[in-house]
């Protein structure tokens, strides 16, 4: 079986890529996609941990998988909301570039 550390490393890399995307992307839609990447990094971490420690008595039942399922559900709702807000933004301002969304500062 592949060591847990590798899964944690994979998840950390994915998470950091997502975080970088949030900061570097200028389109609101792409930022949402980067956030999805971060959430999926979390899911990998949880599922790997849960399946790795199964049977050692340390980890109870299916907590990790359960949390992952909840996260997928909540993330779907979050994207729905965010896209609705972005759509509204596009209708009013004809842009979703976060650099141009700067009415309020400081």
């Amino acid at each position: 079986m592949v060591d847990l550390v590798w899964f944690q490393l994979l998840s950390a890399i994915l998470f950091v890529i997502g975080l970088y995307g949030v900061m570097a992307r200028r389109s609101a839609v792409l930022i949402i996609m980067s956030i999805e990447l971060m959430l999926n990094a979390v899911n990998i971490n949880l599922i790997a941990a849960a399946s790795h420690m199964e049977g050692t008595g340390k980890f109870s039942d299916f907590d990790g998988q359960l949390i992952a399922i909840f996260i997928i559900t909540v993330a779907a709702a979050e994207v729905g909301l965010a896209l609705a807000i972005i759509l509204r933004m596009f209708k009013n301002r004809s842009t979703v570039n976060v650099d141009e969304i700067n009415l309020m500062k400081w």
Binding site: L4, I35, M38, L39, L46, A49, V74, E78
Partner: peptide, 20 residues
């Protein structure tokens, strides 16, 4: 919503690290 979503993701990553 962008800041809220990012902060939730960060919170969740913390949860997953504590869990693992």
């Amino acid at each position: 919503i962008l800041v809220g979503a990012v902060s939730s993701a960060i919170l969740l990553y913390g949860v997953s690290m504590v869990y693992s």
